[in-house]
């Protein structure tokens, strides 16, 4: 299964280029709510990009839009998604079917909802292979065996025969990962892949991602609301707020010296995990005043302005442009503009 992955470092071009992506949902009332308003980023071969955002920030919409799997009512209004040099927004349904699962794997949030309850795990993995590759039954069985063995060191035989209800949450998540990497894609989009798992299993899955990236040269988009997960895993982090990129940059810079007031405030909310001296335990945590903005809100200016502690006059009027604070590190805030 190693035979056809893309090498880690290819030419200078990126694997994925997303430009000015605008997605909106229309409500039954006819009201149009923007979910993503002009998202720009690119992803290199073999790179792990963490997408950090809270509920309603548009992070799952981004995942769905990349695979052209937006739910009914969701529409890509503008922009382009260049993947391996092809614009996915112009791809035909046949082409899309080949790309989804073939070139881009998806790992969704809830493993119990993404597996068929009455088919054994092995069959569900081999179905993905059968849909994309021309293999006879023996080759199919063999390849499924290899795939499962790569995510379940040890008891892959037993897992292959098991039904989803006989597996634990972590095991189901591994089956989904096997499906996602079955056809040696160059990109895997993982939407909150560890949200429902306990910390030990969570770490095991993250370790598996590291191994796969090394072995297969996979690029990943890892979507989460938990900044701590991204430390030590993501190469770069993109912070989404209200459908816009607040900040994007190398992980260490975003996590340890966040520049956007929202990122800084978000990271201050976390209890200083376990490192805190006993005296500050049970102290009040920092909070971000106010509530996340409503999707249907069409105000002018910076979306974070009403909750921002560093707001200026201009923030009410105009939307902040992205400004580079260092190489690779861009922040959309007037503190850095001009």
């Amino acid at each position: 299964m190693v035979e056809k992955y893309s090498p880690m470092v290819q030419t200078m071009t990126s694997l994925l280029e997303v430009e000015n992506l605008r997605v909106s949902y229309s409500a039954r009332t006819g009201e149009v709510c923007p979910a993503l308003s002009g998202v720009d980023f690119d992803l290199g071969y073999g790179e792990i990009l963490g997408v950090l955002g809270e509920s309603g920030s548009g992070k799952s919409t981004l995942a769905a839009a990349l695979l052209r799997l937006l739910p009914a009512g969701g529409k890509i209004q503008q922009g382009s998604i260049l993947f391996e040099g092809r614009n996915l927004l112009r791809a035909s349904p046949q082409e899309l079917r080949k790309i989804r699962g073939g070139r881009i794997g998806l790992i969704s949030q809830e493993p119990s909802c993404s597996l068929h309850p009455t088919l054994p795990a092995g069959q569900q993995v081999s179905d993905v292979l059968a849909a994309h590759e021309n293999l006879d039954r023996r080759a199919l069985r063999q390849k499924t065996g290899h795939l499962l063995a790569s995510v379940f060191p040890g008891d892959s035989e037993r897992i292959s025969r098991s039904y989803p209800h006989e597996l634990s949450g972590g095991q189901r998540q591994r089956v989904l990962i096997a499906q996602a990497i079955a056809c040696a894609p160059s990109l895997v989009v993982a939407d909150e892949p560890t949200a429902s798992l306990d910390p030990t299993t969570q770490q095991e899955i993250l370790q598996l991602f590291r191994t796969l990236r090394q072995k297969l040269g996979l690029a990943m988009i890892l979507i989460t609301h938990n900044p701590a997960l991204l430390a030590g895993l993501a190469d770069r982090i993109l912070v989404l707020y209200a459908g816009r990129i607040a900040e994007i940059g190398p992980s260490a810079q975003v996590l340890y010296s966040p520049q956007h007031p929202y990122t800084a405030a978000l990271l201050r909310c976390l209890p200083s995990h376990l490192a805190e001296p006993p005296s500050t335990r049970k102290a009040r945590l920092h909070v971000i005043q106010g509530e996340a903005p409503d999707l249907s809100w069409h105000g002018n200016g910076c979306q974070f302005e009403p909750r921002c502690t560093e707001r200026m006059e201009v923030c009410k009027r105009d939307e902040p442009p992205a400004a580079a604070v260092s190489e690779l590190h861009e922040v959309s805030c007037f503190k850095f503009a001009g």
Partner: peptide, 26 residues
Amino acid sequence: LYSPNHEATRALLAATPRFSEPPAEL
């Protein structure tokens, strides 16, 4: 927290995601 005795406690503590200390290069 600071002097765990049991294996299970240590395993859980080790698995808790954290990033309170910035990496050396930064």
